[in-house]
């Protein structure tokens, strides 16, 4: 099953990359605020159903994919 993990910085964490992009957008005349940069991880797992796939990937998030000090993850099972 294909699963997508969206990793983003926790709300209170300063995101200097996001800030730099925000400035870049402003230079171009766009108005954008609160720009935050994250990561997208796609992977395939063998699982009987979506719940199993989600549980497997959540365990991966806890062990490696996400650093809970600074990041949070959203797991989406694509099927």
């Amino acid at each position: 099953m294909k699963v997508r993990v969206l990793v983003s910085l926790k709300p209170g964490i300063l995101d200097p990359q996001g800030k730099a992009v925000e400035h870049g957008l402003a230079e171009l005349g766009f108005e954008a605020a609160q720009v935050r940069i994250g990561k997208l991880i796609e992977l395939e797992v063998s699982a009987g159903d979506a719940a199993q796939a989600r549980a497997q990937v959540q365990a991966m998030c806890e062990k490696l994919l996400v650093n809970p000090v600074m990041e949070k993850a959203q797991v989406e099972v694509l099927g």
Binding site: I13, L14, P16, Q17, A20, N67, V69, M70
Partner: peptide
Amino acid sequence: LCEAGLLPGALLRNASL
């Protein structure tokens, strides 16, 4: 050592990038 959990915290990108 932080990633291994032997020390607390994390090292993020420098504020200046």
